[in-house]
Nucleic acid binder design. Structure first.
Length: 651
RNA sequence: GCCAGCGUAGCUCAGUUGGUAGAGCAGCUGAUUCGUAAUCAGCAGGUCGCGGGUUCAAGUCCCAUCGCUGGCUCCA
């Protein structure tokens, strides 16, 4: 048969081995770097036969994403071999490749220690040195089950049973055998650049009710250089960790004596929040939102009626006032619905867009708290849009547009997901289908790529989740758009239609930044603490050279403050270099040096955080420079403010 | 909540096999008046997260608890 092998037409015999086929066209060096092969969308072991329907056969090196993935997965096998050798009682489960590396879960009588990891790593290196071949063997499911049962590998037996396939593959290298679909590198000698990183508990099949396994995480790369680079990046990421920067920049703190997951905002952090909040208020007004505000606690009866008590109770705080039970709000929707219901609404009044920077409290499990990114008390930039069913699509598009504009202003990339009905939920299948479809169509119309997250919706409706990444590449949900046909029903929301009859509106829950706390956290890491001028709590610091310039420096400060610039003056009796250093460490965008020359010229000497040095500038010009810079993201943003007004259908 | 690791001065960290706590920075006082990332000197600062226990003796060992970190599960 004719096959195009690595770009060359080759005549192969039926059943020819891939490695041989590749060897015939590749140089020795190229072949040595080949870890597997691809035929169409199939990834294959080098030891496999060329499939009879294969037209194009490509070698995969460690440099390709697929090749790297195979290296990582193979390294997981290598680790499992080492673990079984050192701890024969450990049972193997699964070991996939993940971003930057791999993990493998073991059932073992005790947790692995850091010393164990060292021993395991040493054992892995031995196996690499021995350069053992990975060999694949096909077995019937029955044979494989018997084979693994004989070794006491009960998890593998369970996997074989659940796979339900008649035929399975078993890979062996050295004395170690593992059930796996493959493919793998041909020899352990190809796995050189890896490091075991940590141990963690993980539930079998990700279910809390299952036994907890011992998971070992590792990272693996094509070569030592890439590995070193990655480890270096991990170090770099630590430097931009918002928890560290939060202390360094004096933005916020946490206090054991006050309670876990509660943020204390220091002056600069509180100012940063306020800047974000002002920005949001303005942008919401431009888009036809109205401000509302409800109380922090509401009677428990209301939470029972809304379904929160049944579905969200374990995340709520409760209290009692005058022998009456109350719940602290974990969400803002109830107050907004109550406000909606204070009068009869006409179809002409819709959509109503109620916005609130609402403080919510959620009892998150202790183990999930994480700096600002996961707290127990936070402020949502929350809105509820109550509209007619025929307006739903446009409203969702409006919100997604809003999200896109905002993310552009902050210079964030984001990914979108649609989450569908979870097991624990309320409402009819029909409503869920309609709402899910509305969300899907909105993203389709806007041409945004998205993934489907089955069963991950809120209990009252499906949602679009927008995620952005932190310094370590972990994704955090910020914006979310949730359709809700259920709460309007439960709270009997209505509007009077053109026909004079009562109709049921639809409600959209949505947040843009998600929580101010989380957003500040991600923002801090995104900019490594060097906030753009429009967000920087301190935009300019005046630094004097000696005490002699104090009066002029104070004059400059008043001038800048009057212009609306967030400025402060460092008048301390310290050397200029020292004051510059401090301002630099505080990541203040503008340093305005004032010495005798500047007093003489009635000007300031501008130094930039980024390093440039615009030099001597008259006060007016310096102020304009700073104000211009703080407008920069809005100029490039291209915000869209179109929205439907609440006047109903054409008159 | 679960698994593991960690909690020493405001911050960053030392502290030997158990022998009774130390540095740098920050702070305070004084000197210095200086041109773009650290001026010098002195002083002060700790119930070693909190509570039990073992021991002649605990920052060090054990138990419990609170908190933090990395995961798991869950979520904005």
């Amino acid at each position: 048969m004719q096959v195009e092998v690595a770009g060359q037409k080759v005549e192969l015999e039926q059943g020819a081995v891939i490695a041989d086929a590749l060897k015939s066209v590749l140089s020795n060096k190229q072949f040595k770097n080949t870890v597997a092969a691809r035929c169409g969308d199939k990834l294959l072991d080098l030891t496999a036969a060329v499939p009879s329907d294969c037209a194009v056969l490509e070698p995969l090196t460690a440099e390709t994403p697929e090749g790297l993935d195979i290296i990582r997965h193979s390294t997981a096998h290598l680790m499992a071999e080492a673990v079984k050798k050192l701890f024969p009682q450990a049972k193997v489960t699964i070991g996939p490749s993940i971003e930057n590396g791999f993990y493998y879960d073991f059932d073992f009588e005790r947790p692995f220690t850091p010393e164990d990891l060292e021993a395991i790593e040493a054992e892995m290196l031995k196996s690499v040195g021995a350069d053992k071949p990975f060999s694949r063997k096909e077995m019937t499911a029955g044979e494989a089950a018997t084979f693994f049962a004989a070794q006491g590998e009960s998890y593998k037996v369970e996997l074989i049973r659940d796979l339900g396939a008649p035929q399975v593959s078993v890979y062996t290298h050295g004395g170690f055998a593992d059930l796996c679909r493959g493919p793998h590198v041909p020899r352990t000698g190809l796995l050189k650049a890896f490091k075991l990183l940590s141990v963690a508990g993980a539930y079998w099949r990700g279910d809390e009710k299952n036994p907890q396994l011992q998971r070992i995480y590792g990272t693996a790369w094509a070569n030592a250089k890439d590995l070193a680079k990655h480890l270096q990046q991990l170090e770099e990421a630590k430097k931009r960790d918002h928890r560290k920067l939060g202390t360094q920049l004096d933005l916020f703190s946490f206090h054991e004596e006050a309670g876990a997951g509660f943020v204390f905002w220091h002056p600069k952090g509180a100012l940063l929040r306020a800047i974000l909040e002002d920005f949001e208020r303005k942008e919401h007004l431009k888009r036809g939102y109205e401000f509302v505000q409800g109380p922090l606690i509401l009677k428990r009866d209301l939470w029972e009626r809304s379904g929160h008590y049944d579905n969200y109770r374990e995340n709520m705080y409760f209290t009692e006032i005058d022998e009456q039970a109350y719940g602290v709000k974990p969400m803002n929707c109830l107050a907004h619905m109550i406000i909606y219901k204070t009068r009869i609404r006409s179809y002409r009044d819709l959509p109503k867009r109620f916005f609130e920077l609402g403080v919510v409290h959620r009892h998150e499990k202790s183990g999930v708290l994480h700096g600002l990114l996961r707290v127990r008390s936070f402020t949502q930039d929350d809105a509820h849009i109550i509209c007619r069913p025929d307006q739903l699509q446009d409203e969702i598009i409006g919100v997604v547009n809003f999200v896109r504009d905002i993310m552009k202003i902050f210079d964030f990339d984001f990914t979108a997901e649609i989450s569908t009905r979870p097991e624990k939920s309320i409402g009819s299948d029909q409503d869920w289908d309609r709402a899910t479809e509305a969300l899907r169509q909105a993203l389709e119309k806007m041409g945004l790529p998205y993934e489907i997250n089955e069963g991950d919706g809120a209990f009252y409706g499906p949602k679009i989740d927008i995620k952005i990444k932190d310094a370590l590449g972990r994704s955090w949900q910020c914006a979310t758009v949730q359709c809700d046909f259920t709460l309007p029903e439960r709270f009997d929301l209505s509007y009077v239609g053109e026909d004079g009859g009562r109709h049921r509106p639809v409600m959209v829950h949505r947040v843009l930044l998600g929580s101010i706390e989380r957003f500040v956290g991600v923002l801090t890491e995104h900019f490594a603490g060097a906030f753009p001028v429009w967000l920087a709590p301190v935009q300019a610091r005046i630094v004097t050279v000696t005490d002699a310039q104090k009066p002029f420096a104070e004059k400059v400060l008043r001038f800048l403050l009057e212009k609306g610039i967030r400025a402060e003056a460092d008048l301390r009796n310290e050397k200029l270099g020292f004051k510059i250093r401090e301002a630099q460490l505080e990541k203040i965008p503008y340093m305005l040096v004032v010495g005798d020359k500047e007093v003489e010229a009635q000007a300031v000497n501008v130094r930039l955080r980024e390093g440039g040095d615009p030099g001597l500038k008259p006060l007016e010009e310096a102020a304009r420079m700073i104000l211009d810079a703080s407008q920069e993201p809005f100029k490039r943003g291209g915000m869209r403010y179109s929205f439907s007004t609440a006047t109903g259908p054409a008159d």
